[in-house]
């Protein structure tokens, strides 16, 4: 298939960017979206041009490295997948595809379609863990956990940290990401011990980094490649309110 690509090109963070048109020919409909970009890049290199920079790694939908805002949607038109799992059979011959980077203040563009998502790491560092050290822990089966809770925790923990929720949200809010981690620990007994501090610290860090607010549009859930539910946002809200209400003044 032949396609017209309109790709955001930006040499570096400080420079101005713009959409540039590229034509690609003879793309197999069985190729993945990123393989299509590989074909373009290989041609650009041969022609002595600067290839398009984009983040990617595992190419099986789990590392969360790939991003891309494709035709107005994070990870492209299909539901429940990442860009690397998107295949060209999803597009029509002759179609024009607009490819942009994630857009959010805390996700500055590094080059072309690459953005800096270290803000997510900072949020996790603010409290996305159980503060235990290696060793000295009880036997694994000493902490029985209802299957339902373990499943809920797993639903939340499935987050790959790709940032599609932020990219999709009209407010560039990171609530789905943050709530997925808060929620995972909130339902597990291991996480309950620090639950109050965790939710307050993580939310404070999220706000400090300049993410927008949640206005419950649910675009995040619709675009999440792991289909993480907004019920986790509600759980975080609940956790946050109750933590704020009961926590002592220090």
């Amino acid at each position: 298939m032949d396609l017209t690509l309109k790709i955001w090109r930006q040499a570096s963070a400080g420079e101005k960017g713009k959409l540039v048109d590229y034509q690609v020919q003879n793309i197999s409909s069985e190729a993945s979206f990123l393989e299509m970009l590989d074909v373009l890049n290989e041609r650009l290199v041969r022609e002595g041009e600067d290839p398009v920079a984009f983040d990617h790694d595992c190419r099986e939908g789990i590392c969360g490295a790939c991003s891309l805002y494709i035709n107005g949607r994070p990870h492209g038109p299909d539901k429940g997948i990442t860009t690397c799992q998107l295949h060209m059979r999803r597009f029509k011959d002759g179609e024009t595809i607009v490819i942009e980077p994630w857009r959010a203040k805390p996700f500055p563009v590094i080059k072309d379609l690459m953005v800096d998502r270290s803000a997510f790491d900072e949020i996790i560092q603010a409290g996305g863990y159980v503060s235990i050290n290696t060793g000295g822990v009880p036997d694994a089966n000493a902490i029985p956990i209802p299957k339902r809770d373990a499943d809920t925790a797993m639903d939340a923990a499935a987050c790959i940290g790709c940032g599609a929720c932020v990219a999709a949200c009209k407010n560039a809010s990171a609530m789905l990401f943050v709530s997925a981690k808060v929620s995972q620990f909130a339902v597990l007994p291991q996480g309950k011990i620090e639950a109050r501090e965790r939710v307050q610290n993580m939310v404070a860090k999220m706000d400090e980094l300049g993410f927008g607010n949640c206005t419950n549009t649910y675009a995040c859930e619709a675009e999440c490649p792991k289909e993480i539910s907004v019920s986790h946002i509600a759980r975080m809200n609940r956790e946050y309110l109750s933590a704020k209400l009961v926590s002592q003044i220090e």
Partner: peptide
């Protein structure tokens, strides 16, 4: 065996039986 204990303590959501055990 220590690894499993450690991971569970960290909050890794391993699959469980209905009785709550791994």
């Amino acid at each position: 065996n220590n690894i499993i204990d450690q991971c569970v303590a960290q909050g890794v959501p391993f699959a469980r039986e209905y009785g709550g055990l791994l």
